[in-house]
């Protein structure tokens, strides 16, 4: 198959055009041929506007918009919506309004004590313009109740299974706790599971199969350290992709994922085309700056994860 990288779905038209046209024209054509994304998901329920993974964010999402949330298990195996395996000291505080001094690991606290002891949504350094609405963490059961009674009515829930080695329950336990609750709630909403390890995704695939629950799995790639040099990781992966020592198609196939969510800093159009050719769905995100979504909308990807909820659709 011979095709212009930006024009996977219309190869003949694009090929002839780009070969014949001067480079500048070819640039425009290659960009213009790409199909727009079918879906734009509200990342962390719209973190650019409201506190991430919060009640406020969930309740203010327009109906029909797909929503992304993160979940970890607390000590008592209750899933709770939070982006990290611990309470982020820059976004959370004690109920008395004091800063968090010692790390609070979700794995070491029961959900009830997490909700009774701390509140998040105080301020978000990544999104200083977002509303600050201090509130307790949202339990997964509460999210399911909101889905069941229509308080939250997304077209799909993209649930990021925040499983991490050494600071989480076993991935099989994690998958069972989340998926069995989802089946019991019977919300009728489409479920997409995201994780940054193949181990976690395969645990969800296996449990979903036993529950006869249709899910789509998405590998979040590359895997970044929860703390430390994300920049260094992205630089290393970016150089690896360029030189051919790291391959995103191989990563998705190794994880057994239906699709892959590529971080925008390492996404390359050639890799996107190879993924589509391999039959793997492609998503890019999170897109956190206003210029991101318009730039990536021209790429031939299936899904964008957008922090600004007004861009979700």
């Amino acid at each position: 198959m011979l095709a212009d990288p930006g024009c996977q779905d219309v190869p003949l038209r694009c090929l002839s055009t780009t070969v014949m046209a001067p480079l500048v024209l070819a640039t425009v054509v290659a960009s213009g041929c790409a199909e727009g994304p079918q879906v734009a998901v509200a990342w962390r329920a719209g973190a650019a506007a409201w506190p991430e993974n919060s009640r406020t964010a969930l309740k203010r999402l327009p109906p029909g918009v797909p929503v992304h949330v993160d979940a970890f298990l607390a000590f008592d195996r209750q899933p709770v919506l939070n982006a990290l395996p611990y309470l982020d000291e820059s976004r959370c505080e004690t109920l008395a309004g004091n800063p968090i001094e010692e790390p609070v690991w979700l794995l070491q606290e029961e959900l009830a004590s997490l909700q009774a002891g701390w509140r998040c949504g105080v301020v978000d350094p990544a999104f200083p313009d977002a509303a600050t609405v201090p509130d307790s963490l949202v339990g997964f059961d509460e999210l399911l109740a909101m889905l069941a009674d229509g308080t939250v009515a997304p077209s799909a829930v993209h649930l990021q299974a925040g499983w991490a080695p050494n600071v989480s329950h076993d991935p099989d336990v994690f998958a069972a706790e989340l998926l069995e609750r989802w089946v019991r709630a019977d919300t009728g909403v489409e479920l997409v599971i995201l994780a940054d390890t193949g181990l976690a995704l395969q645990a969800f695939e296996a449990r979903a199969k036993t529950l006869d629950l249709p899910i789509t799995t998405t590998l979040l790639w590359p895997r970044l350290p929860p703390k430390g040099s994300q920049w260094g990781t992205e630089l290393g992966v970016g150089l690896g992709v360029m030189s051919g020592t790291v391959d995103v198609v191989q990563a998705a196939e190794d994880a057994g994922a239906d699709s892959i969510l590529i971080r925008p800093s390492v996404a390359a159009r050639g890799e996107v085309r190879a993924l589509r050719h391999a039959g793997i769905g492609v998503a890019i995100g999170p897109l956190t700056h206003p210029a991101d979504a318009p730039a990536f909308e021209r790429w031939p990807v299936d899904t964008l994860y957008v922090a600004d909820p007004t861009e979700a659709r």
Partner: peptide, 15 residues
Amino acid sequence: DASWARPEWSTWSAL
């Protein structure tokens, strides 16, 4: 799009 990690020459592009 072949790479050392996935040496397959199945998808081609012309620029």
